[in-house]
Design a protein around this nucleic acid. Structure first.
Lengths: 238, 238
DNA sequence: CGTTAAGTTGAGCCTCGTCAACTATGGTGG
DNA sequence: CCACCATAGTTGACGAGGCTCAACTTAACG
């Protein structure tokens, strides 16, 4: 695996998949490539949704600041978190091929997004040539990200999933020039559990376990790594 | 969920996700839209791989006949099946953003593929305007497909996964004007197990269970539905 | 016809989900 | 500023679903 969070723009990191390595820390977000497509700027408060499952598809959204979760309601009515979106990420890519959004995007904190419009009046997609390349690579990367998540949830234990998640988030932090060792998670335990395909209680149990092993410290949503190499090690020797 | 197999081209099926319904049977494959991008035609024997994980990315491949599995080797060295590709599907989309293939594609039976080339000499992507729209929708749809698989594997029991898989395959069959009630699976039990995030033994146990409940008949790779409504019912009332 | 891989079946165990009770947190209105 | 309530988070006990391991049968293929 490579990353659990979308990265932007794609870098080049050949070789075997390596869980939650520095792949997220490749290159700086370069969101301005899409600037010609920007429309409105929207400010979101925590809990607010920029689009709702089933509503007509209008555009994708580029996250400038804050954080989002994108989720799908299943037949039982409870939500499954598909991904988290950080600054530089595009949301709604999975809905382009439909006339409506196949999931919802909800702000986890006060956030700023741009509308990214590329549909003509007849709903046909029109990308300026200089953006085409970039856009397709973004989608390809998104595809690879979900595949990573798929591998993580189908072949790894609860502890490994938590570790991979935290390491990926950490990498994303340093990507934004924030501390990779100490950070505050914008999402709830429930969100993490849903994202990783676990029960909330299991998430907690794994966190306490990692705490007892002196690998990290968690108080509420604040995370502090004690032994980051130890964490990485537990991922490799699965 | 909507489908576990890529569909081509995307249709319009608004509303909540509904597992393995007729969504796969939307519209006929219309692969010729990409015809301007076709290069060589390649014939593959079972077990042959059209590209290998880590090798330099050259192009995507359109399946014309036969079937493929695309897989990723994890750090332990065993393969995880990411998707199955049927006639009309594109493979390698997840590798566009990298200089190399992030997984491998292996023929499950004697198959025919087209090389789909859209990279210029400088590796920049160049899509004819009339194809752009179509191509992006394909990628978006692929994204939605994997999200479906993600939801299936993270929130559903072994039995439900098997049922969803078989129903999706059945839908794909009728999509190709083949019988939806009786068909031969091109992939091994191992492939199915890996794809659904299960052990081979579990796959079998569920098949026998469904057999005992008079819902279907399985002999080797041949599947015959006895009570397709019964199967659908067991998916809804999860 | 022999060899190897694929498929099947059973027994036992372990991880993780479920349920229930409890505590902490944060937001709101009096 | 505090009381209140709702939501989020925590902890423990228990059970079940599915994985592991091992033995065996069947199928595929030269």
């Amino acid at each position: 695996m490579d990353s659990l969070f979308a990265s932007f723009p794609p870098g080049t990191n050949p070789g075997c998949p390596s869980y939650a390595t520095s792949s997220l820390a490749r290159s700086k977000p370069n969101s301005d490539t899409l600037a010609p497509l920007f429309r409105n700027k929207i400010l979101c408060e925590p809990g607010e949704r920029i689009y709702a499952q089933g509503s007509p598809f209008t555009c994708c959204y580029l996250v400038r600041s804050g954080a989002f979760k994108s989720l799908v309601l299943n037949e039982r009515g409870d939500e499954k978190i598909i991904s988290f979106h950080m600054p530089g990420d595009l949301t709604g890519l999975d809905s382009i091929h439909r006339g409506h959004y196949i999931g919802s995007a909800v702000a986890l904190e006060r956030s700023l997004v741009y509308e990214v419009m590329f549909q003509g009046p007849g709903n046909e997609l029109r990308l300026p040539p200089e953006i085409q390349d970039h856009f397709i690579r973004i989608m390809s990367r998104e595809l690879a990200n979900i595949e990573d998540l798929l591998m993580l949830t189908s072949e790894h234990t609860a502890e490994e999933r938590i570790i991979a998640f935290l390491l990926a988030f950490s990498a994303r932090q340093s990507h934004q020039n924030l501390s990779a060792h100490q950070f505050r998670l914008p999402m709830s335990r429930n969100d993490i559990a849903s994202f990783l395909g676990l029960a909330v209680e299991t998430v907690r149990r794994m966190l306490t376990r990692l705490h007892e092993k002196n690998l990290l410290k968690v108080t509420g949503r604040n995370v502090e790594f004690i032994d980051i190499e130890g964490l990485r090690y537990r991922l490799k020797t699965a």
